[in-house]
């Protein structure tokens, strides 16, 4: 019994410490209190809605989010815009559809079932417009970076003057959290860049937090139900384990042996 427990904890320790060490960089990221962390972690709806605003007004001109649909914005566990709001958001985008009966492609206002409109036709066009660098798709960006949300959050605030020993080419910027410190993206945020509908002060820090929260949701849209289900599942398993433990003791009491 005790041995088994010890073994489990040792192995989990090893595995987790091992996988932590995979994260290539050992930079201290900026920390903030994420509402979605922890056993019962949930998204902050207002922050998600603000984060969507930052994405759509700032990031979306270069970064696509090709796995998201406008309907996701109204789904439970996300920003939870009302259906009418989500429809209005979708309709504000021009979507290419077709071909019609004449064989022509045409544009129409977006519908809930449409995917997020992409800023560029394809990867080549994106590269051509950004000096050869491809602005990565942001749908699962948080999960695709070693440091996760802390990394993105820090990166957005990590722009500073390059140290004198670092020379930068044209169109390359210095960011202390970027791998190799050189980044093709100019500092995307500045104080007051967007005007929040709910009156929140749009500081760089606030916008970074909001948009990172939004990106976490876009990467893990079922995070809330996962946490809820996980808690129930583990409580259930513990109850059943206790019951089985006592049943086992009863059954084994028939033989003169220890379990």
């Amino acid at each position: 019994m005790k041995n088994l427990f010890k073994l489990f904890s040792i192995i989990i320790l090893i595995i987790t410490s091992n996988s932590n060490s995979f994260a290539a960089e050992k930079v201290e990221y900026l920390k903030t209190d994420w509402s979605f962390k922890g056993l019962f972690g949930k998204f902050d709806r207002a922050s998600l809605q603000r984060g969507y605003q930052v994405y759509t007004e700032v990031c979306a001109s270069c970064h696509s989010m090709k796995y998201l649909s406008y309907r996701n914005l109204a789904e439970p566990g996300g920003p939870e815009f009302s259906e009418a709001q989500a429809k209005a958001i979708a309709a504000s985008f021009e979507v290419t559809d077709g071909p019609n009966s004449d064989g022509e492609m045409f544009t129409r206002p977006g519908k809930l079932s449409d995917k997020f409109v992409m800023p560029y036709e394809n990867v080549k066009a994106a590269q051509a417009a950004n000096g050869g660098a491809y602005p990565p798709d942001m749908s699962v960006l948080v999960k695709a970076r070693g440091g996760g949300v802390d990394y993105i959050y820090s990166l957005l605030q990590g722009y500073e003057e390059a140290p004198s020993n670092v020379s930068l080419d044209d169109g390359v910027y210095y960011n202390k959290y970027m791998y190799g410190n050189k980044i093709r993206m100019a500092a995307p945020l500045s104080d007051g860049l967007v005007e929040y509908g709910d009156g929140t002060n749009a500081t760089v820090e606030q916008m970074s937090k909001d948009v990172t929260t939004f990106l976490m949701w876009s990467a893990e849209p079922h995070l809330e139900s996962r946490h809820q289900m996980g808690f129930k599942a583990i409580v259930y398993l513990i109850i059943l384990t206790v019951l089985v433990y006592f049943s086992m003791k009863r059954i084994w009491s028939r033989v003169e042996s220890e379990v």
Binding site: Y236, I239, S247, R250
Partner: peptide, 19 residues
């Protein structure tokens, strides 16, 4: 009491399996 314990264990287990 033993019967109750076994019944409870089986029932709880069955609920989980169904879930």
């Amino acid at each position: 009491r033993r019967d109750f314990l076994f019944t409870a264990t089986t029932a709880v287990g069955a609920v989980g399996a169904a879930a």
